[in-house]
Simulated scan of single mutants.
Amino acid sequence: MFDLANPILIFAAAIGSGIVGGIFYAFSSFVMAALGRLPPAHGAAAMNAINVTVITPSFMIAFMGTALVSLVLAGSSFFWWGQTGARVTFAASLIYLVGCFGVTTACNVPLNNRLAAITPQQEAVLWAHYLDRWTLWNHVRTAASVVAAVLFTAVLFLI
């Protein structure tokens, strides 16, 4: 049943996915290009530092909190499926969960772990591959986060 909790959760998901999308957009727009202009050892070291530093409460609340809220909204949308906004809420939730959270855990994090584990002799070879692959997957999660934010916001106008 649709109740007051849903608009609050939908609003939180819209804000959270927008914040996450903005962070990822910065990386797609200029951060990775800037790191790519550095010598491989410096670029890899900077990215490794970013990957450690990003584990902060403020980022994790936005990133993982939005995933949790999206999971709750996806499940609860079946209880009000016939009502306005339920299908869009489900779609937005699924897009965030798969396109942002899923891509991060399946693609970006393994690349980060591999980069952190390489020796200095491997940096030059891996760095070019890392930049291309990581940025490609970052584009996907950026788009997913932004689309989810737009859809969650649209639901607020529908209900």
Rank of each mutant, 00 (worst) to 15 (best):
V52P: 00
T53R: 12
T53D: 07
T53M: 06
V54L: 10
V54P: 00
T56H: 02
T56I: 02
P57E: 13
P57Y: 13
F59W: 15
M60L: 15
M60A: 14
M60G: 09
I61Y: 01
I61P: 00
I61M: 09
A62F: 10
G65I: 08
L68F: 13
L68H: 02
V69P: 01
V69L: 04
S70M: 02
S70W: 02
L71D: 03
L71W: 13
L73N: 01
L73V: 01
L73G: 01
A74N: 01
A74T: 05
G75S: 03
S76I: 04
S76F: 08
S77N: 06
S77Y: 09
F78T: 04
F78V: 05
F79C: 00
F79A: 00
F79W: 08
W80G: 00
W80N: 02
W81F: 12
G82L: 01
G82F: 00
Q83N: 13
Q83C: 03
T84F: 05
T84P: 14
T84L: 12
G85F: 00
G85I: 00
G85K: 00
G85N: 08
R87P: 00
V88L: 15
V88F: 13
V88G: 02
T89G: 09
F90A: 14
F90Q: 06
F90W: 15
A91K: 03
A91Y: 10
A91N: 09
A92Q: 09
A92P: 11
A92R: 08
L94N: 02
Y96P: 03
L97R: 03
V98R: 05
V98H: 05
G99Y: 04
G99N: 06
C100T: 15
G102A: 13
V103Y: 11
V103P: 10
V103W: 08
V103Q: 11
V103A: 11
T104C: 12
T104R: 12
T104S: 14
T105F: 15
T105P: 00
T105G: 14
C107E: 06
C107Y: 03
C107V: 04
N108A: 09
N108D: 04
N108C: 12
V109Y: 04
P110Y: 09
P110N: 06
L111V: 03
N112H: 08
N112V: 09
N113S: 13
N113Q: 15
N113W: 04
N113H: 14
R114P: 09
A116T: 10
A116R: 06
A117C: 07
A117M: 10
P120Y: 01
P120Q: 07
P120I: 00
Q121L: 06
Q121S: 11
Q122D: 14
Q122F: 10
A124H: 07
L126Y: 15
L126C: 08
L126I: 11
W127L: 12
W127Y: 09
A128Q: 15
A128N: 13
A128L: 14
H129N: 12
Y130V: 04
Y130M: 08
Y130P: 07
Y130F: 15
Y130T: 03
Y130D: 06
Y130R: 08
L131D: 07
D132C: 07
D132N: 10
D132T: 12
R133W: 04
R133M: 10
W134L: 04
W134F: 09
T135I: 07
L136Q: 13
L136P: 02
L136I: 05
W137T: 05
W137V: 06
H139Q: 06
H139D: 05
H139V: 01
V140W: 12
R141W: 05
R141T: 05
R141K: 07
